[in-house]
Design a protein around this nucleic acid. Structure first.
Length: 426
RNA sequence: GCGGCUAUAGUUCAGCGGCAGAACGCCUGACUGUGGCUCAGGAUGUCGUGGGUUCGAUCCCCACUAGCCGCCCCA
């Protein structure tokens, strides 16, 4: 019988690596709290149409990368329903915003999430089929200020702070504006027009993109096509006055906070719902998957999903990639040592040893418990791997109330009264 | 979905058409209530899975699966 393995593109996260994951999540929660964000937890699967409508029917995510299944009807009166494991979390958050009528509060909703997402892509470094995202959304009725460029700048400034507090060294911020949905539509039309006479001279991929998703041509890395691409119309020329002023204000606020950025006129995000500000934080050393996080404004998403007008801005960062980046920067993760290894000398002392460990743990110490079945030498060997100190509990110690404690680092060994043990181990 | 590379001990890897290897780790002992350092000894295993060629395949061939790298796309 073949052994069972984690399915393709999924993996187990084990100690001590999970400590790094917890550190990243704790840091994110701490920063989000300072900006007064609250946590939202949406279901891991949703009605398929949420993603089809929200993310965009024509995107690769929806057309070929979703885990979708038909949830069968359980009674004749019930209809089967197409369900999908969430490929990203923004659509779910906006669905919840609409469903719970959060706009009726009149306040901006500032929500963050941390959780797994699912895409059926070919796995490679930093790209898994179950991957973890940390993200946040600022969304609300226009009267709450949800359209203000200040919100864009605040979110981006928060991300710069978060990456710094995580200790990510050398991140880069690229930013652009894709304009309102009307601007975007006019620009895409202009792009198509400009591409029509020249696309035959471009590579195969770009010829296809010119048809299916002209914005993607701008992203092309094909060296031979760069000259043509440089000659294509720029999105900035198609922004209306409001979008232009909006973008100027975002940049001004970033300048005021000295958040470094590069305006990249070719930065277009793949998902249909983005409008105006789009941005991406990248880091070298991640190979082809160099984006740490991406985000942008989605002023029309709520309405696309049948909700009220609720402009918003948000981002999603790949936690898997943060882990990779931090691992590359730091020394290999090592399991933290326990404060003490309690070693009963003989199986008859096991129960007493558990009682002692319970006392120490009750005082907040991190304690490993050995086994009286171990030879003393083995207890020392294990203790040396797991803890800073070893506490011996033999017949002598039990009757005298004086416990033997040895410090593995110094080799110093002393007798300590049981009542003073907690303090001695701190 | 496409292309390239890879798969051998717990781990990192070497190897060869004819007995399965190293280092680290692990176990035992030198040392019966004392770890690390040292020394002596020991076990590592369906050589990814299935098929083919061959007297004989871990090695050559094919398929599959998985991983890595890139493409597509994307966080």
């Amino acid at each position: 019988m073949s052994t069972l393995k984690a399915v393709r593109g999924t993996r187990d996260l084990l100690p001590p690596e999970t400590e790094l994951w917890n550190h990243i999540e704790a840091t994110a929660r701490r920063v989000f709290a300072r900006y007064n964000f609250g946590e939202i937890r949406t279901p891991i699967f949703e009605d398929t149409s949420l993603f089809a409508r929200g993310v965009g029917e024509e995107t690769d995510i929806v057309s070929k990368e979703m885990y979708t299944w038909e949830d069968r009807a359980r009674a004749q009166s019930e209809k089967s329903q197409s369900l999908t494991l969430r490929p990203e979390n923004t659509a779910g958050v906006v669905r919840a915003y609409i469903e719970h009528k959060l706009g009726e509060t009149g306040l901006l909703q500032k929500l963050f999430y941390i959780g797994p997402q699912f895409r059926r892509e070919r796995p490679q470094k930093g790209r898994y089929r179950q991957f973890w995202q940390i993200g946040a959304e600022v969304i609300g009725p226009p009267s709450a200020g949800s359209e203000s460029p200040l919100r864009d700048a605040e979110v981006i400034e928060m991300l710069a702070t978060l990456l710094d507090e995580l200790g990510i060294v050398g991140w880069k911020l690229e930013i652009n504006s894709v304009g309102s949905s009307a601007d975007r539509a006019r620009y895409v039309a202009a792009l198509r027009e400009a591409l029509a006479p020249v696309k035959d001279r471009m590579c195969e991929d770009n010829q296809r993109r010119a048809e299916t998703n002209p914005l993607r041509v701008l992203d092309s890395k094909d060296a031979g096509d760069q000259e043509i691409i440089d000659g294509l119309p720029k999105i900035a020329e198609y922004l209306d006055a409001e979008s232009t002023e909006n973008f100027r204000q975002v940049l001004a606020a970033l300048n005021a906070c000295a958040v470094p950025y590069t305006v990249n006129p070719r930065l277009v995000r793949g998902l249909d719902y983005y409008t105006r500000t789009t941005f991406e934080f990248t880091h070298g050393g991640l190979g082809a998957q160099n984006a740490l996080l991406g985000g942008g404004r989605y002023d029309g998403l709520s309405e696309v999903l049948g909700g009220p007008k609720a402009p918003g801005i948000g981002f999603a960062m790949g936690e898997d990639r943060l882990v990779l980046t931090l691992q590359a920067q730091a020394a290999e993760a090592k399991a933290a040592l326990a404060d003490a290894f309690v070693a009963p000398l003989g199986e008859g002392l096991n129960a007493e040893a558990l009682k002692l460990a319970r006392e120490l743990r009750g005082a907040g110490l991190r304690v490993e418990l050995g086994d009286g079945g171990f030879r003393l030498k083995k207890s020392f060997e294990m203790g040396n791997k797991l803890a800073r100190k070893i506490v011996l509990l033999g017949e002598d110690e039990l009757s005298s109330g004086m416990l033997t404690v040895k410090d593995f680092a110094t080799g110093e060994q002393v007798k300590i009264a049981r009542t003073n043990l907690t303090e001695a181990l701190r």
